[in-house]
Design a protein around this nucleic acid. Structure first.
Lengths: 148, 148, 148, 148
DNA sequence: GTGGTCTAGACCACA
DNA sequence: GTGGTCTAGACCACG
């Protein structure tokens, strides 16, 4: 799939109130559920510091209208984010970013997820060095990553 | 054995003919589809060299009986593996391992998948060093990985 | 109506919402799989411009009910159409026509398919001129063909 | 799929007794049944004049051994060829090429087959001119074609 | 209401 | 005996 086609099918909307740098891109032709795509985009936004601890997410209705999806779908994404410890639901401000750090748990999750991703790569002759390069590349792309 | 007990157990079966080292573990309680779990297990088996290039997978009926799932579910897993370039469906020998290496494509897929996994980690204060350690750990667990 | 009568009739249903010009005809006596017949009919419908780029196909249930076949059979046809680059599965709108043009690939496929069809003709004394006449005849039958 | 991969999975054997120019190539990973591939290859051989009217085909056993497939499969291919009017079964010489020409029937069959093949092309922007070029190209590749 | 998943059982073509 | 096809019915996630 070319980049052009990819762009065409994408639905792009701003996630931050001031319209600075974070965008949500939903691919309606993807086999990944829309609410999971939305959840992942928001997590990436947090990792990039585009949305910071304490920042409120757009309201369910606003987000749904911007992306052009159902309110229920946005609601589901926010619920999952709460369940996974990325946001808290505030009665006045709606969903606000509040990351709940459980180092052991997250490392276990990553080990499981990485095993599958890396196994796919190893089958296709991806070397350990190439994997490390990818990790560095991605960490550099996320502002919070290399500040550590 | 009641259905309940059946549900709560992990289902473990051997994937190799000689019963050496590769096992398939299905978690019926997981929210991940059975055919995807099976697909991932087989990919991990290939990455571990438990199943090698040219080896035939068990027939759909045999695999289904061993795991205790339906034939069609196994069929779906095999179809996805074929679609993703891990096996070929030989009309005489059934499904045989035949990895189709497309380096650019696999690196792009990994970049996308890793971005999501690492973003989750970064949000929860996982450092770049810890991520590298996980990668090394997983590569060492797969025999094909540290032969490089 | 008995099963026998049911078997011996052609099943004709409309594929377009406004019931204008495109029909699906399934021959239950054919040795060609139903899902392949359905796939071919839809491709012919696209070639005739009866279904246009961006148009949604009927839902699998609706199509299945109209034709009198099982939902899963329609699903298989849609999956193949997706795989071959004729439709995309939009999570909101279902299957929509979206032709993915890869000129080199399609010409190679046609060369292979035409070789077999023409070889059969050549054996039975069909001349090059007669083949060209057939091609013209078919192109004229498809509206998109003679607009070039 | 690269040419190299294609070659690798092919099973190539000679179909003519004197080992001149006609070969049978079976792709065991194809979704097309082996007996149909064999049938098509033999028809192409007749169209190319590699096997001529009255020539005997190799015996079922010999053909099966050469290609590495089951005798029943070869038998099925020969039966279909007889049914479709390409060979006759001679008690002494086995299957001999004997084309039964029924011009109307073959033209009808070609019209139906070409409709599907061309429709696929039209969807993917193949022009009438390109189709004609392919027909010419194929007719020139078959020796019997341009002698008319 | 939609498609996705899973199960079950059946028949047939293929090898 | 194998996979491919088709049917039927069921549940659930998604939107």
């Amino acid at each position: 799939m070319t980049d052009l086609q990819y762009c065409y099918m994408m639905c792009i909307t701003d996630i931050t109130k001031d319209g600075e740098c974070m965008f949500v891109q939903i691919d309606f032709n993807s086999d990944e559920a829309i609410y999971l795509q939305l959840r992942n985009q928001i997590i990436i936004g947090i990792a990039m510091d585009a949305i910071k601890e304490g920042d409120p997410l757009p309201s369910v209705r606003q987000m749904a209208d911007n992306i052009g999806i159902n309110m229920h779908t946005v609601n589901k994404a926010y619920s999952v984010l709460k369940q996974e410890g990325f946001v808290k639901l505030d009665r006045r401000k709606g969903a606000v970013v509040a990351v709940d750090v459980d180092k052991m748990r997250v490392l276990d999750e990553m080990r499981r997820d990485l095993s599958v991703v890396l196994a796919r790569g190893i089958c296709k002759n991806v070397t350990c060095e190439e994997a490390h390069q990818l990790v560095d590349e991605i960490f550099q792309a996320f502002s919070r990553g290399h500040s550590k």
